[in-house]
Write a protein that binds this DNA or RNA. Sequence first.
RNA 1: GCGCCCAUAGCUCAAUUGGAUAGAGUGCCAGCCUACGAAGCUGUAGGUUCCCCGUUCGAGCCGGGGUGGGCGCGCCA
Length: 548
Amino acid sequence: MIKIEQDLATIIKNAVKKTFPEIPDNVIAESLSLEVPKEKKFGDFSANIAMKLSRELRKPPFEIAGSIIKNIEKSYSIQDVKVEKPGFINFYISNKAVAGALEDIIKEGAGFGVSTAGKNKKVQIEFVSANPTGPLTVAHGRQAAIGDSLARILKFCGYDVIKEYYVNDEGVQIQALGKSLRARYMELMGEKSDFPENGYKGKYIYDMAQKLKDSGVVERSSAPLSDDFFMEHATREIMKTIVKDLEDFGVHFDVWYSQKALAKSGKVEKAIDDLKKKEFLYEQDGATWFKSTGLGDDKDRVIIKSDGSYTYLTPDTAYHKEKFEKGYHRIINIWGPDHHGYINRIKAACQALGYDTEKLSILIAQLVTLYRDGKPVKMSTREGEFITLREVMDEVGRDAARFFFIMRRVESHLDFDLALAKTQTLDNPVYYIQYAHARISSIIEFSKDALPNLKNLVLLDKEQELDIVKAMMYYPKIIEAAASNLEPSILLTYLQDLAGLFHSYYNAYRIVTDDKPLTETRITLIQAVKKVIASGLGLLGVTALEKM
RNA sequence: GCGCCCAUAGCUCAAUUGGAUAGAGUGCCAGCCUACGAAGCUGUAGGUUCCCCGUUCGAGCCGGGGUGGGCGCGCCA
């Protein structure tokens, strides 16, 4: 919370206490919140406490507000206080306080907006975690952009953030991958191929087989044609491209957690054992079942199949057990839309093991539909018909790709118009924000000898100038909202608004004039805008350009 | 059939988590460059927030019922 807001909160609290001494402190604290009114004529901050207290006091809100307002202390930061219709108490900030806020913003520099909300709290965020059976698709791209941006925002709020990728490097699909590669390789060697029914038909398998043939590794090997060889080779090669794609996308993981290693560690058996001890397991039809029904799941789940192997849920339960044991304050998973039916299952498992599932937030990054020439692009991973993250990055650039993936709320479907993301003109929202940043850089360069100066901030008296400072004042609130809602799109929307305010201001007033003190002051203002935009774009993983 | 997500201006989406007269962009139309980047700005038009009940000082937001769309529902991962 910013200083002015804190001051106002204290002032209101005191006024309410003085007016209604019978109301307990905790009730006041609960009912007290400050909002930024949608409409400017309702002031800069608004309190709805009179409405909240209406029932308790058995009086109309308007009357309560009228009584409270009489006890509001005078403060240099308050220009005016008014009671409005149903019972809002609206505060109008003085120009002096606005200038003070700008001074704070400048002084805090890159640290402006940083919060201590997450101090000493560890957060783990697991995302992408795509199976190494093919290249990353646009769906993974969205998960990557969201997860990485969220991690940056949480870090900015003081959390100790660990970014993790769960590598699904064993199981039926990996076996199918190995068999697919082997079959393609045999084809190239002119031998009979036995391409598996559930195999991967994408072109990348052919390419990999070709490379393998060219390298001659297989011929030189002593036990050349085993399934294991092809499986391990394919997994390793695909992981390499995944890591490279993510690095190029600006996403770096702290931990790559191997399912295979987990299986070898004995932790899976330990997790099964725990479930057994807590009497959540039973045998039926030759399989071992997890009794998840009472824990929010709609049916029981198999944990050990009748052939003795595990289902996906089994090692995943062990994985989540470990997450909880590491003592994270918060555990965040970002999954694709095809996994939403799985949420209750894994939560049931965590609950059965005795963990607090409130700590576990599972976000579903909803579907991305790519549009080309106004028509949706059809995709199917298995058939090898899909657009990769790499292709999108190459086509529209990293900045536009990241921006577009974050543009909508996490749980909303996303229409991604490739042509639009590519346009370097007016329609493209990425450029709108980057353009504001570049324009400011250019003006600062042009003004050369006019340096930022905090002495004459009161010269900022134009409505648009004050609006810009106020918008920046709300930046820490926006960061907090994005963090607590796990929604980077909140920050993105804010940056569009801030850039818009700047562009309007630029068109209405000259920054650089013959009046030196005024020029210096305006340069100070836009300098601050530049920093906030750079800060925000940085949290989205988008470059703030000096020139474009 | 069951579960999850979604439905707001012609289109794509916001709306400070229950606040005041529901806002932007885009598209249409009309304007603004002999001074700082026109990749920009200003203005006009555009709404039964899918429908019906309910909860309360107040509902686009919460609850119930419906309609339409997407996704999921395996001893797959």
